[in-house]
Simulated assay, not measured.
Amino acid sequence: MSVRSVIDRYYERVNAGDWDGWLELFDEHLVMDEQLGGHLEGLNALRGAVAGMKQVYSRFQNTPRHFVIHGAQACVVSHISATSASGKPIEAEVANYFLIEEEKITYMANFHDSVPFAPILSPEPRRVRASE
């Protein structure tokens, strides 16, 4: 399978909500630097992050717009269009960097503005009534 095929499957599975299939694209010993989730090592850590994503997003789409592939490396510029579990929209431009070895993603990093993700990063403010 080519680097481009792995990358295409990455976005197909994300956009289909096929998180189990998405996880299959990663090497067991992957390293990921995720802008919101931090530094992750190993497939079990990524499984935990996916469980969190399922809780904070009611909808998540990541549409690729531009690909640069060189050997085993790829960079994809894309647009995230999502909805938080509380119904707030999230729109963000993102760049993902991938290292693919033996048809598996062994390293990934993403880069984006964190401001659009405020609905999932900040808890809903507690409303206090004057009588409290």
Rank of each mutant, 00 (worst) to 15 (best):
Y57N: 04
A85K: 10
G17D: 04
E28A: 14
A51H: 08
G71P: 02
M53Q: 05
L25M: 06
N62M: 11
V68C: 13
E24A: 07
F67A: 03
V31K: 05
V56P: 06
Y11R: 03
I69M: 08
F60Q: 01
I69S: 05
L23C: 05
C75Y: 03
W19F: 09
D18T: 06
L46N: 02
A85Q: 09
L46H: 04
W22P: 08
M32W: 13
F67K: 02
F67D: 06
V56W: 00
V68Y: 07
D33A: 15
G52P: 10
W22T: 10
T83D: 06
Y10S: 01
D33L: 13
Y57Q: 02
A51M: 14
K54S: 11
S2C: 07
V76E: 00
N44C: 15
G71H: 00
L36R: 02
W22V: 10
H70P: 12
A51C: 12
C75D: 11
R47Q: 07
W19M: 10
M53I: 14
G52D: 12
R65A: 08
E34I: 14
L30A: 07
E24F: 07
S5G: 13
H39M: 12
R47A: 05
F26Y: 05
A72M: 04
R9G: 11
E34W: 08
A82I: 11
R13P: 15
T83Y: 02
L40I: 15
L25K: 03
V14E: 02
V14C: 05
S58H: 08
V6G: 04
V6L: 02
S81W: 01
K54I: 14
Q61H: 12
L36G: 09
S2I: 08
D18W: 03
R65M: 09
I69Y: 02
G17Q: 03
H70M: 14
V6N: 03
H66L: 15
R13G: 12
G42H: 01
G21H: 00
E34F: 10
A49T: 15
G38F: 01
A45L: 08
F26E: 03
G38S: 08
K54G: 09
Y10L: 01
Q55G: 13
L30F: 04
V14N: 01
Y57F: 13
F67W: 06
E24P: 10
H70G: 15
L36P: 09
A85F: 06
V31S: 09
S58W: 06
Q73F: 05
G37L: 07
D27Y: 00
V76M: 02
L43Q: 10
S78Q: 06
D33C: 13
R9Q: 12
G21E: 00
Q55A: 14
I7F: 00
K54Y: 09
H79M: 12
I80W: 03
F26V: 03
L40W: 03
W19A: 13
V77A: 11
Q55K: 10
V68L: 13
F60H: 03
E28S: 15
V3I: 10
R47I: 12
L36T: 11
G42F: 00
S78I: 05
A51W: 08
V68G: 13
F60T: 06
S5F: 01
G52V: 13
Q55I: 14
Y11F: 11
E24D: 10
A45T: 11
L46Y: 07
V77S: 11
F67E: 05
A16M: 07
G38D: 10
P64M: 00
F26R: 01
G42D: 01
G17C: 04
K54H: 07
N15T: 04
V77K: 07
H39G: 14
D8C: 08
